[in-house]
Nucleic acid binder design. Structure first.
Length: 584
RNA sequence: GCGCCCGUAGCUCAGUCGGAUAGAGCAUCAGCCUUCUAAGCUGAGGGUCGCUGGUUCGAUUCCAGCCGGGCGCACCA
């Protein structure tokens, strides 16, 4: 695990200091503490601070301030690493790392390139991320879109941290919902053929059902009218299933998402996997009969009550196939199963964890990421949606209106477990208020900078080719420190399964870059604008950045810095599945 | 009734091994376009971190109880 090139050095130095203090009998250190470094909020607290002295206070039975003093006194080569090492009130270790050392961050970014921020913490760990998994009974709506964005980001985050990841879509192509789909389409089909029909109760009312029915009619004519009801229903269902699943795939493709694996629920029933799993459970007394139904003894694993897996009428419940599905996933040898679910399914978690435990795995083997509802707004006004009447906003509509990038970024901006207000007007606005553009624009702006430089014949050195020692401004160092935090953010984002952390980081970074750009020059003033400035009256107050003397060396170093910024923004957006445009 | 999630600035939200004077965006107000993209920037105001106790050097963070909001509690998925 790396906390960044500079932070790692600081960590090592502190561990070294602790060890040497221990050897000289200054500290007992029954357990070597983990060195936790943080970026202090105030500049006078240095670059990096550490609270280890305070956490040792209890076990050492000494005031934290003394411990901090001992640590500082035992840092080897203190002057080579730090320009300042101070102790603050309770026992904070406030360290200021030598400026030259921070430049290693830029060289590290160059050396790692697209892999900067990536790590190997997940090495050897196989993870299955199952997400979207919407019923193939209609087009994807916004809520699915959020789940899709979250799932994809998780897949990318986990890969970036060295996990071996498979993405999978579980197709609920069995059961009652599919039956209703067939009945709904058949009803619309009969309608289209001029037959008066009563629409099935709980059927799907969306307009797309009519479209599917039209397609059935166009392809098969009126033959369904003369088929036995069960056959007509079967044909309608199969047709609708294929068409709607294809539609879902298309929507996902447009959204920039492709699954490696599509897993069919029906296949679990037809292969006998469901029956087999249930008999396995019965053999272990985890399945019992009661009131004519079959029950899974989930209460044995912490669920609040037992659950029906086979109804009185003989049909399997959704849980039955879900047991078989998760059994299958576990059997495929994954070290971790990540399920992305709508938050309204949260009551289902203990049940699935019971399944995992029933098969002898710790319940942590399954981690469920809940995705809360999306509130669509348009200019602050709520867009009403009602799934019952079929009047919901589709992912397709949102993508058409604001684009896939903006939609994804908005979906990922907040903790997925909280309600999200998604303002369509804001998302398509090309202005600073729109966080997507604000972040993407950093990337585009730096690209633009380099285009201008090229057109003027100014070289754009990489960090290793530039003399970075001229980067002395506090704003430059602040940017570099922010870049140095990227690996930690990426890792935390992945480990906690919380992509919104990365989105926040990128917005913060953008919030430093744009002001920097405005305050400081990077390229020298263009020859013609210089002439104009010289010709204009001298009473124009020079702004901070025109006052800065631009030398070729400084331009080169700042271009190298911007190159690194751009790389980090690109890596961050990439992990969220959002594009990094060269031009906007 | 039981369970899960949430309650932080006017609004939307960060803050996850407990740390220093609690942050960001938007909105509001006051400014900035002869400039490398104003698709941008500068500054200001704004808070009893739902309430009450507990744990300790220290609590927005952990624990208990209460108040308020959401969701779940199917032989639906």
């Amino acid at each position: 695990m790396t906390q960044g090139v500079v932070q790692d050095k600081v960590s090592q130095a502190l561990v070294g200091a602790l060890r040497s203090a221990q050897q000289r009998g200054m500290l007992k250190l029954e357990q070597m503490p983990t060195i936790n470094l943080e970026a202090p909020k105030r500049p006078e607290w240095g670059d990096v601070s550490c609270t280890v002295a305070m956490s040792l206070s209890a076990s050492e039975r000494r005031p934290p301030f003394e411990i901090a003093q001992i640590i500082v006194d035992h840092i080897e080569q203190r002057d080579a690493l730090f320009s300042r090492a101070e102790i603050a009130r309770p026992g904070f270790l406030n360290l200021t790392v030598k400026r030259e050392l921070w430049m290693d961050v830029l060289r590290e970014i160059e050396a790692q390139g697209e892999r900067y921020g990536h790590s190997l913490v997940g090495r050897g760990r196989r993870v299955l991320v199952e997400y979207v998994s919407a019923n193939p009974t209609g087009p994807l709506h916004v809520g699915h879109g959020r789940g899709a964005a979250v799932g994809q980001a998780l897949v990318r985050l986990l890969r970036a941290t060295g996990h071996d990841v498979v993405s999978e879509y579980y197709i609920n192509d069995a059961g009652r919902q599919m039956k209703l789909l067939g009945l709904s389409v058949l009803a619309r089909y009969r309608e289209a053929c001029g037959q008066p029909v009563s629409f099935p109760e709980d059927g799907y009312h969306g307009g797309y059902i009519r479209t599917v029915a039209e397609h059935v009619k166009a392809e098969q004519g009126v033959v369904l009218l003369s088929l036995p009801a069960a056959d007509a229903e079967q044909r309608s269902r199969d047709f609708a299933y294929r068409e709607l699943l294809a539609l879902i795939r298309q929507d996902l493709e447009t959204f920039g998402i492709a699954f490696e694996s599509w897993f069919s629920e029906a296949s679990l029933l037809s292969s006998g996997a469901v029956e087999q799993v249930l008999s396995e459970l019965r053999a272990r007394d985890l399945l019992f009969d009661q009131e004519g139904a079959q029950w899974f003894r989930s209460s044995a694993f912490g669920d609040e009550k037992d659950r029906v897996v086979r109804k009185q009428e003989g049909d399997y419940t959704y849980l039955a196939s879900d047991i078989a599905y998760h059994r299958d996933k576990l059997r495929r040898g994954f070290d971790l199963l990540v399920d992305v679910w709508g938050a309204d399914h949260h009551g289902y978690i203990p049940r699935m964890q019971a399944v995992v435990q029933a098969y002898g795995y710790p319940k942590e083997r399954l981690r469920v990421v809940l995705v809360q509802m999306v509130n669509l707004l348009r200019g602050g006004q709520k867009v009403e949606m009602s799934k019952r009447s079929g009047e919901f906003i589709t992912l397709r509509e949102v993508m058409d209106e604001v684009g896939a990038d903006a939609a994804k970024f908005f979906f990922l901006m907040r903790d997925s477990s909280t309600h999200l207000d998604f303002d369509l007007e804001l998302a398509k606005q090309q202005s600073q208020e729109n966080p997507v553009y604000y972040v993407q624009y950093v990337h585009a702006r730096i690209a633009s900078l380099r285009r201008v430089a090229a057109s003027r014949g100014i070289a754009c050195p990489l960090p290793s080719q530039a003399d970075l020692n001229v980067l002395e401004d506090p704003d430059e160092l602040a940017l570099i420190r922010k870049l140095s935090a990227f690996p930690v953010v990426l890792q935390a984002s992945a480990v906690e399964l919380e992509p919104h952390r990365m989105a926040y980081y990128l917005r913060e970074l953008a919030g430093m870059v744009h002001p920097f750009y405005n305050k400081h020059r990077i390229l020298p003033p263009a020859p013609d604008s210089e002439a104009v400035t010289a010709a204009s009256t001298e009473q124009v107050a020079p702004s901070a950045r025109t006052a800065e003397a631009m030398t070729p060396g400084l331009t080169g170093a700042r271009l190298a810095l911007m190159w690194a910024v751009q790389q980090v923004v690109r890596n961050g957006l990439n992990v969220l599945g959002v594009s990094a445009p060269e031009q906007m």
